Amino acid sequence: MKQGWEYKKLGEVCNITMGQSPDGKSINDNEGVEFHQGKTCFGERTLGVSCLFSNAPVKLAEANSVLLCVRAPVGYPNITNRKICIGRGLCALYAKENIDNTFLFYSLLGKQSHFEKNATGSTFKAISSKVISNTEIPFPPKSTQLSIVSELDKINELIRLKKEQLKDYDNLAQSIFYEMFGDPVENEKGWEVKKWKEVFNTILGKMLDKSKQINHLKQYKYLANMNVQWGYFDLKELRSMTFTDEELAKYELRNNDLLICEGGDAGRCAIWKETDETILFQKAIHRARLIDTDNADVVYIRYWMQFYKVNKGLKDYISKSTIEHLTGDKLKRLPIPLPPLPLQHLFAQRIEQIERQKPAVQKSITDLETILASRMQYWFE
């Protein structure tokens, strides 16, 4: 414990309000108090706006309360700058005079693993009001709290600015696309249109079936849905499984393969670049390999797919149950407008110039996030 500090339970320093869902008939889209059930509208720190309202709220979170997710996923905090109605997935902690609410937010941010360990339930993990009330946080003098908040806020602001810089690059890419090719859905410039199956050879990855895996086969890393993001691959947590020689030949990735999410954020895609390691892919991902290289550039199509999805072009091709799906049959029927190949290549060259700027910015973000994690650990663990 740092000198002059003590630890106090959340129940001692906050007024805690556990959420309760209002009557379903009171839920609407424009009348009453803004309604939040879980972390759907959580931002980096400040709560976003919900499209749901209740004209008969049961439990309210006051403005400047810190919200905490109490049902799966548990332990995520956010601050609301306005009074809202909260359902059973949230609780609200209203800081008393001797604790700063932003300091409380950072304190809870450092308690996520604690809340996860103390969550109970088989189907949905949840934390009780007793767990929340008895959770201890560091409690330095108010002046020290404000000093810590100032330090962490400055690091977070630098991270925000760097992320905004990445968004600016993405907006520039979109602007270039629209300038060169027009609306990706309307095809207002009248480019030649081909179906996806005429341009790509597309297959789904290997089904994950551990019962059919043979232990003596070699294990290879593979891409899952979560590893494929818009325009890049998140390779921090690659899993491994066994593949036969026949499967290895079928599912091994090659340079310039386009990987497309079949479910979740259906259509999300990125272009694979060769590495020294053999990487494969599983069933939740379509692999598209160009067969019509005389008419199509994979970089152009990667960006066309993103803007086509953003502009609701995929809505008639996506099946929905609990989550959206882009099946192989529907993907193969997608109509792709194909401008002249030299124009596609020119677009790819301009995009490459933008993409070259991104790694340095991303590294700055990673370095700043490492510093933030280190300072959070210093102050709160």
Rank of each mutant, 00 (worst) to 15 (best):
I159H: 00
E44W: 03
L47M: 11
V228K: 00
P138I: 14
Q357R: 04
C51H: 14
P22N: 13
L68P: 00
T244P: 12
L253E: 13
T327Y: 09
A249T: 03
L172D: 00
F243S: 06
Y7M: 15
P22D: 13
K195M: 11
P73D: 02
L152T: 11
K330E: 08
G24F: 03
K330C: 02
I214C: 09
E198P: 08
N256D: 15
L238R: 05
F124T: 08
G89C: 08
K221V: 01
A63N: 08
N98Q: 13
S113G: 06
L68T: 00
T366E: 15
M1A: 10
R350Q: 10
L331V: 08
K315Q: 15
L235I: 03
W196K: 02
E277T: 13
N118W: 06
G32W: 12
E12S: 10
Y76L: 06
N30I: 04
K236H: 01
D153V: 02
E262T: 03
F243Q: 05
Q3L: 12
V33H: 09
L10D: 03
Q145W: 08
I148A: 09
G205I: 04
C85R: 07
D292A: 12
L47V: 05
I279W: 03
R71F: 04
I260Y: 07
L368Y: 14
G87L: 11
S150L: 14
I285D: 00
Y169T: 10
L372D: 07
T275Y: 04
Q362H: 06
H114C: 00
E34S: 15
G11I: 07
A373S: 13
F307E: 12
E164L: 13
M376A: 04
L10M: 04
L372I: 09
V310F: 09
C51N: 15
D234W: 02
P140N: 14
S122F: 05
N295H: 13
I155M: 01
S107K: 01
N225M: 12
R254T: 02
V361I: 15
R160H: 05
L238C: 05
S364L: 12
I159V: 13
Y308D: 01
S65F: 06
L346T: 12
E6I: 08
E355C: 04
N15D: 13
P340D: 11
L217I: 02
L235D: 08
E136M: 11
L280N: 14
R302N: 14
L368E: 09
G267W: 07
Q282A: 10
L331N: 01
A373H: 06
I336Q: 03
F105R: 03
K197Q: 10
L60G: 06
Q174A: 15
D245G: 00
Q353P: 01
R239I: 11
T370H: 00
S321Y: 04
V185P: 12
P184G: 06
Q377A: 09
G267A: 04
K210C: 05
E237K: 09
A360F: 07
L280F: 06
N55Y: 15
N311M: 09
I27P: 07
I86W: 11
I127M: 13
N28W: 01
S321A: 15
E369M: 09
V66S: 08
S211L: 11
L338G: 03
C261F: 13
L108N: 00
Y222R: 05
P73S: 08
